[in-house]
Amino acid sequence: MGYFGEILVARSVQPLAESSAIGGTAVLDERELGSGWRLAQLDGGVPGALAELTRLTGAPALSVFVIDSDTALVEAVSPAGSGWMAHLHPEHAAELGAPELELDTPEIVVRAVAWAAEAGLSVDAGAVEAALSAKNVFVEETFDELLAALGIAA
């Protein structure tokens, strides 16, 4: 059985575990990704955490809700309102009955690149598209590839 829960990624000077955005939810793992970015893997999910984290940090942030390490819904938001959503391993999401997203992959890539620019990151649209269509055994590996494509992780 794989991981079920939310992973938050934000630029923050304090550990995300200390943020009021996650309340008292347990943090299973937290790591620094470089350039002030942090990743926190939560024990479950926190409704509204992404919006609150973006408000508190004043910077773009993203979350991924992982289902059994098979599929995930990524959501990215920014203080200026740019954002996007994408399924990782979308075939598994469809098998579980997840609703289709409004945007197709090329439009998601355009929005992801704009979001990254707002975060001060330079990205290659081709790398983002490749990460969104990657097929790994565990969706967390695909998410790591997406973070790297977005310029967040080395």
Rank of each mutant, 00 (worst) to 15 (best):
121 L>V: 12
81 G>E: 14
61 A>Y: 00
125 A>M: 10
63 S>A: 15
37 W>P: 03
105 T>W: 09
59 A>Q: 03
122 S>M: 11
61 A>L: 02
96 L>P: 04
84 W>K: 12
122 S>K: 12
30 E>K: 14
34 G>M: 13
57 T>F: 03
135 K>H: 09
109 V>P: 06
45 G>S: 10
34 G>V: 09
133 S>Y: 01
119 A>Y: 12
84 W>G: 08
74 V>E: 04
57 T>K: 14
129 E>Q: 15
39 L>D: 01
105 T>L: 10
116 A>K: 09
87 H>V: 01
103 L>C: 07
85 M>H: 14
46 V>S: 03
78 S>R: 02
105 T>V: 14
52 E>R: 12
113 V>F: 10
91 E>R: 01
39 L>W: 01
134 A>Y: 10
86 A>E: 09
29 D>C: 09
135 K>A: 11
46 V>D: 02
57 T>P: 02
144 D>A: 14
128 V>Y: 07
35 S>E: 15
87 H>A: 03
138 F>I: 02
54 T>G: 03
83 G>W: 15
55 R>V: 07
90 P>Y: 00
37 W>N: 06
33 L>W: 08
58 G>V: 05
53 L>A: 03
104 D>H: 08
137 V>C: 08
31 R>G: 11
106 P>N: 13
44 G>V: 01
41 Q>I: 09
105 T>A: 04
69 S>P: 06
126 G>I: 11
70 D>Q: 05
55 R>A: 11
69 S>L: 05
52 E>V: 06
43 D>V: 04
68 D>S: 15
144 D>N: 09
105 T>D: 06
128 V>F: 07
132 L>A: 11
72 A>G: 04
70 D>H: 02
59 A>R: 04
60 P>A: 01
136 N>S: 14
72 A>F: 01
114 A>N: 14
102 E>F: 05
137 V>A: 13
120 G>N: 03
41 Q>G: 04
96 L>R: 05
117 A>Y: 07
102 E>L: 13
123 V>N: 10
